[in-house]
Each structure stands twice: as C-alpha cells, then as structure tokens.
C-alpha cells in the first residue's frame, strides 16, 4: 500500500495510530493481571505470604502520605543491588504491593527509600523527625510537618475507604485477604481521636508481628 493512501485518509490514519499504539498496553500491561507464582511467593496480583490489608489507622496514614506528597521525594522500592540492600534492607518484590492502590514506588530519592523504614526507627524517633527533621538528622532538607500533630482525625471516610478497598481487591486480586465486616464497622472508632501524625507513623512503622505497615520484611 502506498503511503499516500494514509496521508489522504485521516480515518485510516487514526485507526492505524490507535491500533499500533495499543499494542504496548496489550503486551506489557494486560499480562500483569494474570501472573501467578508458587503459593506465598507473591506476584503482581498475589500477596506474599502473610501480608494483610492495611488496618484502618494505617490506611488513613497512607492517605496522609499521599496527601503530603511524600512520594515526590521518597521511593518505596529497594532494588536488588548490594549497597542498596545494605542500606535499606531486603529488595522489594511484586507481591508486597498488591494492597497498594495506587502504588507508591516513587520516581526520585531526594530523601532515602522508605520501603523498610519501619524496621529501623521507633515511634518516638519518627515523631521528633516529623516535627523537626534536622533535629534528628542534621543536614536534612525535609520540610517539618507540625500540622500533622495538631490535626485530630474523625474517621468519617474510613468505612467508605475500607469498603472501596474491598471492592478493588475482589476485582483485581485473587488471593488477597479482604476486610471482615466487623473490622470495617470498628474502623472509624480506631481512627477517631488519633492525630494525623499517629496515623502516618503507624503506616511508616507497621510492626512485624502485625503485617501491613512498611516495616514488614520480604519473605
């Protein structure tokens, strides 16, 4: 076919462009919905062994992380390089992110990676750091977040958020755990009265006996 035909027919041109462009999404994105791995290893749509959805307070904490734009300066993706695992901990795997809507892998490290920050610092350290970063990390250029400690949450959206997460998990993830009805009903009570700072720290410092925060180590 002579190229002139395409140059004179804008409809044909548009169809060609659309078909050619959509191959990329079909080839690189669609298969990700169907990847499986041996049980417990986790994949793009299967959680690693033992990983649970974020509990109510951590889910709210994660939304504060998104709201404050933490992901503009912090990644949550430890790459498999020796100096990097030495600095941050075990490298990240796909099955750790299945409860993340959206992913917070980040694109730039103005500050260090936070994928495993929970395993290294106490709640007290985080509190001091959020209020005045340079007081615990001399030379830090991170902004202070004093308003987080002053804002008490009321948990009005918590139920909706948990139900929405359940819908998403049922849609996209075959082996994911979902919130039980009693957890959803108890959600607002767990959030109410906490400061935003406490919620953010709960998200950052998810402890290892209760998987779900950032501190959860890779299997």
């Amino acid at each position: 076919m002579s190229h002139e035909v395409v140059e004179k027919n804008i409809g044909l041109w548009a169809i060609m462009v659309l078909v050619i462009m959509s191959t990329a999404g079909l080839g690189e994105i669609i298969p990700l919905f169907f990847l499986t791995a041996p049980k417990g290893v986790g994949s793009t749509v299967e959680p690693v062994r033992g990983l649970q959805p974020y509990d109510a307070l951590r889910l709210e904490g994660r939304d504060i992380y998104i709201r404050e734009g933490c992901a503009h300066c912090h990644t949550q993706m430890v790459r498999p390089f020796q100096p990097e695992t030495q600095r941050y901990g075990p490298f990240s795997v796909a099955g750790e992110s299945v409860y993340d809507h959206p992913a917070l892998w980040g694109i730039k490290r103005t500050g260090p990676d936070l994928a495993r920050v929970g395993s290294g610092y106490s709640d007290f350290w985080h509190r001091e750091h959020l209020r005045d970063p340079a007081s615990v990390v001399p030379g830090s250029i991170m902004p202070a977040y004093p308003w987080l400690a002053e804002t008490v949450m009321d948990g009005t959206l918590t139920t909706t958020k948990m139900r929405t997460m359940n819908t998403l998990l049922r849609l996209t993830c075959r082996t994911c755990a979902v919130y039980a009805e009693k957890d959803i009903e108890a959600g607002p009570a767990k959030v109410r009265g906490s400061t935003e700072e406490e919620a953010l720290i709960a998200y950052l410092n998810g402890d290892s006996d209760q998987p779900g925060g950032l501190g959860h180590p890779a299997p």
Partner: peptide, 12 residues
Amino acid sequence: YSLYPGTVDAMV
C-alpha cells in the same frame, strides 16, 4: 483509589 493493584499500577 486507583483501580490497579501495586505493581500493575506502577506499570500503568
């Protein structure tokens, strides 16, 4: 909340 789970969302 984004429709896509973690890794897929990062790819999208």
